[in-house]
């Protein structure tokens, strides 16, 4: 919007659970997802953003103009100062953020670092499909202290068959080049790989192919879907069984070959330790999005539910991030079990499952106060992890260095 008012119509449906009675106790945002570019050079067949129900991206500028980025940096610093934050995360996202240029991403990140108060660390990451990564661009990102997260569905061409460009050509050759370049030349910049679970693929083969890319971390994301638009292949616990198979391969490896966020956060929750993932648990959610026109929105995954689901009506030119904290959708994700369906609140897995991903709870006419469409799959996976952890707890002690007692 570059200084003009937001023009999106207010969505006809909100569907967020009402804030429970009592004083407002919003947590500040600490994660700022900045849409450096709103288009993508790929056209993945399952993309919830470009192939989903929400098409607001069509009305927005392809790249974030300079004034939007400048104002966003100021708003982030303002929020950090107001809440005395010691750490904030800046996630450079898209679309494909590298379409904006590595220099633009570096300049923006530098601007945020210059404007936040002294003592506030800025953790910057770019999330890319890896096809545009070159040695020169990676050097620019590394110099700016921007880590690189990569989106891939496995470590082979077959695994990535749904990740194609706008002409239908496979993205894998370019993505593989980019991923290996990060792993081999810029390992200190390598944040990890995000993979959308495809239950038609062999789970262990997929996991092992990803290990070949040497990621320091992986996350396995359930495909976005909900009760009104169920994800493909839902039923017969295929997603849950897929996760269990990978968990067993990871758990029994004899060494931690890579960090798997979903698995490790599940272990944390089972043991009563702090955890933070959208997929599990009851931790308050503290991320907010700035679109290429400066609109302040909720996270993109909500757009898989219905058109305008992420809309707030706010923008960085006229509003502070504090005003976004009062949006009912933001508030609902900070109230823990109070925002969940009665069935979830009565479930013995509540503190671990947490109702699953917020977007997966949606049902037209019922809003978001429902169990996850993946409820049965999550139960299968969580109980499986709990059983493995219980069995491990019965093992004999050994030395911390792995030697014999």
């Amino acid at each position: 919007m570059s200084g003009e008012a937001a023009t999106d119509p207010a969505p006809a449906v909100l569907g967020h659970p009402a804030r429970p009675p009592g004083p407002e106790t919003s947590l500040p945002f600490r994660q700022f997802i900045v849409k450096a570019h709103g288009r993508c050079n790929l056209a993945c067949t399952y993309c919830y953003l470009y192939a989903g129900p929400d098409s607001t991206w069509r009305t927005r500028p392809p790249a974030a103009p300079a004034d939007v980025l400048d104002r966003t940096a100021t708003r982030i610093a303002e929020h950090a100062r107001a809440h005395e934050l010691t750490d904030v995360a800046v996630v450079l996202h898209g679309g494909e953020p590298l379409l904006a240029g590595a220099d633009t991403l570096a300049d923006f990140t530098t601007r945020v670092r210059e404007r936040v108060p002294a003592g506030c660390a800025v953790h910057a990451t770019v999330q890319t499909n890896a096809t545009l990564l070159t040695e020169e661009r990676l050097a620019v990102l590394a110099e700016a202290g921007i880590r690189v997260g990569i989106s891939l569905d496995g470590g082979t061409a077959a695994h990535n068959r749904r990740r194609v460009d706008h002409a239908g050509r496979p993205s894998w050759p370019a993505a593989a080049r980019g991923a290996l370049l990060v792993a081999e030349r810029f390992p200190e910049s390598y944040a990890g790989v995000l993979t959308v679970v495809d239950p038609t693929l062999d789970p262990v083969e997929t996991y092992e192919s990803l290990l070949a890319l040497e990621p320091p971390a992986l996350d396995l994301l359930l495909p976005h879907g909900n009760w009104s638009a169920p994800p493909p292949h839902l039923g017969d616990l295929r997603h849950g069984d897929w996760l269990c198979a990978v968990f067993d391969r990871w758990w029994a490896a004899g060494r931690r070959e890579t960090r798997v966020r979903l698995f490790e956060e599940c272990v944390a929750l089972l043991l009563g330790l702090p955890a933070s993932t959208e997929a599990l648990g009851l931790a308050p959610f503290d991320a907010v999005v700035v679109e290429t026109d400066g609109s302040i929105e909720q996270v993109d995954s909500l757009k898989s539910a219905y058109p305008g689901a992420a809309w707030t009506g706010l923008d960085v030119f006229r509003h502070t991030f504090d005003e976004a904290l009062r949006h009912p959708g933001v508030a609902a994700r900070q109230t823990g079990a109070a925002a969940l369906a009665a069935q979830c609140r009565a479930c013995p897995l509540l503190r671990v499952c947490g109702g699953g991903h917020y977007a997966h709870r949606y049902r037209a006419g019922h809003g978001f106060q429902n169990p996850s469409v993946y409820c049965a799959d999550l139960q299968r996976f969580i109980r499986h992890a709990a059983a493995r952890l219980t069995a491990a707890a019965a093992l004999e002690p050994t030395q911390r260095d792995g030697g014999t007692p």
């Binding site: 994660q31 995360a89 996630v91 971390a217 043991l271 955890a275 993932t277 996270v299 013995p348 139960q379």
Partner: peptide, 21 residues
């Protein structure tokens, strides 16, 4: 086959946004 009870590095910032690291 859901009503059965589950028995209570792992840390420093916890970043909960799943569509990145």
């Amino acid at each position: 086959d859901s009503d059965e009870p589950l028995d209570l590095e792992l840390r420093e910032m916890l970043w909960g946004f799943d569509n990145s690291f």
